Structure formats: structure tokens, C-alpha cells
Simulated assay, not measured.
Amino acid sequence: MATGMTRHRVTRVRWNEGADGATTSTREDIVAREEPLEIRIDGTSWSVTMRTPGDDFDLVAGFLVSEGVIAARDELASLRYCAGFDEFGRREENTYNVIDAVLGRGAVPPTDAHARHSTTTSACGICGTTSIEAVSKQSRFEVADDGIRIDAGILARLPDVLRESQALFDRTGGVHAAGLFTAEGELLCLREDVGRHNAVDKIVGWAVREDRLPLSGTVLQVSGRASFELVQKARLAGIPVLAAVSAPSSLAVDLAAASGMTLVGFSRGASLAIYTCPERVLVPAVAGATAP
């Protein structure tokens, strides 16, 4: 069984077409795992997030980028799993649910460790921060001047490519995905998690550990909606185009516009909606059509 999955016995109920009543059956089902991950910085506990185990180092590295702590591979000296402690302060066996990040030169150590030390659910990307100003950190990378151009047809196909590559979703039906693409539609990296924010952090963490930041000339395609937090994470990684299969929020649109980022919503194969910076998306004109 893969790291991100577990088995549970379930009772299935099915109604018989054209007949009264239903039948039941018991079988094993595969469920996406969700477990806590404690993140420490230089040995000090900083945050606890709920995630799907797998690509944990990417998750932590990406989370540090999203929090404005690091922006380059050299600013992260090391990542390691370590044992936790029980309620009595006794050292427990390594459960692979605690990671200590040792910062390198150039990193910006968080000053709000006590305020940030709270449980972040897999559905929330900014829980535990003290104010909206703390979230709106100034990125070290600019996306407004990125020269990327992407064909609208390629952009519209990215959700299908993302879905076809989701191995964990195929088994469980219960995870989000984020995929990083080139302007030509080549998939560079895909990550899955019960939390859509975690999936994006895993992408960004992969990039920083591969010394790829800023992610100029790339497109981030996500399942679900485009929230303020996802735009913020893309901005801090230097990603110029963010596309989602569902709707963006008003704050997401505002932040994308202020950052010079192209934000696309409702990207579903046959159509899409461009909310900000449409000049990056090349739309072929239909022969004989006239502008409204």
C-alpha cells in the first residue's frame, strides 16, 4: 500500500433500479491518509499541519517559501525527520510526523513562532497567522514582467493532463492536485494531497530543493477553486500564471491583479475565464468572427 493510502472496511448500500429496497455489501475500500506533521525550525516547534504523507520534505520546504522564510535552496541547510515527545515530555519513536528544518544563510527566521504555532488543517493555508498583513508578504520575485505566453488551447487542456496523472486520486477519489507546466504544456511536477494548499506547497518545495526558484515561464494548474492563499503561494514562488478548474475568490483576483499575475478560472477543456492579465493567453480568432 502506498504511503498516502490506507484500507478500511465499508458497507455499500445500493438501490435496485425498478425495485423497492436496497442491497448491502461489505468490502475493503482505499482511503487517502491524513496525518499531522509537526514542523520545527532550528529545533523549535513552529507549526502543525494536516497532510497526506508523502513528499514531506517538499511540503515543508514549500511551506517555508509560502511563509517568506526562504526563497532559495541555499537558505535551507537541511531537513530531517525526528522523534516527537508525548504529553509527559518523554521522547517517542520516530513516526515520520515531525520534521526539523535547519535554516541557512540568507533565510528570514520567523519572528512570530508562538503565534504561528497552531494546527493548520488540510483545508486552510493561513490558519494561525495573526493578521492579513502578515499573510501579504512582499515576494522576492516579480511576476509582472514575465514574458510567458501560452496558447489558450494548451491552457484549456491542462486540467485533463492533471487529472490523467493523478495516481492517488484514481485509488482514493479523495485528494487535490497541483501541477506545474511549461508554456508548451509539458508537465514538470505533480503533487497530490488531501489539502489543496499542501499540494501547492509540495510543488513549490520541489522547485526550491531543485534550485528552480523563481518559477518564471511556468503555469500552475490546480484542482478546485483559486483562493487568495493559492495566489499568494504562487506569487512567492514567482509563478506568473495560475489556473483553476473552479472559481476564484474576490481577494484572489485582487491579489493577482496587484501582482501582475494571470489568473484563470473555470478551466474545463472547452472554455475558461481569464480574470487578470489576459495578454499572456494567446487566443486564436475564429475566421469571419467580429468583435462584440
Rank of each mutant, 00 (worst) to 15 (best):
A32H: 01
A32W: 05
A32S: 06
A32K: 06
A32M: 03
A32R: 06
R33G: 00
R33V: 12
R33M: 10
R33N: 04
R33F: 04
E34Y: 04
E34Q: 12
E34T: 13
E34F: 03
E34R: 13
E34I: 12
E35G: 12
E35T: 14
E35C: 13
E35S: 14
E35F: 10
E35M: 14
P36Y: 04
L37K: 05
L37Q: 10
L37F: 07
L37M: 12
L37N: 05
L37E: 08
L37W: 05
E38G: 08
E38R: 15
E38S: 14
I39R: 08
I39H: 10
R40T: 06
R40D: 08
R40P: 09
R40Y: 11
I41G: 09
I41L: 12
I41T: 10
I41M: 09
D42S: 08
D42Q: 02
G43Q: 08
G43S: 11
G43C: 10
T44R: 14
T44G: 07
T44P: 02
S45Y: 09
S45W: 07
W46E: 06
W46F: 15
W46K: 02
W46M: 03
W46N: 02
S47F: 05
S47Y: 09
V48F: 12
V48A: 10
V48M: 13
T49P: 05
T49E: 10
T49N: 09
T49M: 11
T49C: 10
M50C: 11
R51H: 14
R51C: 07
R51P: 03
R51Y: 10
T52F: 01
T52A: 04
T52E: 00
T52G: 04
P53L: 08
P53T: 03
G54V: 01
G54N: 07
G54R: 00
G54L: 01
D55L: 00
D55M: 02
D55P: 01
F57W: 03
D58C: 07
D58P: 00
D58W: 01
L59K: 02
L59V: 01
L59H: 09
L59D: 02
L59S: 04
V60L: 03
A61I: 00
A61Y: 02
A61Q: 00
A61F: 05
G62C: 04
F63T: 11
F63M: 13
F63L: 12
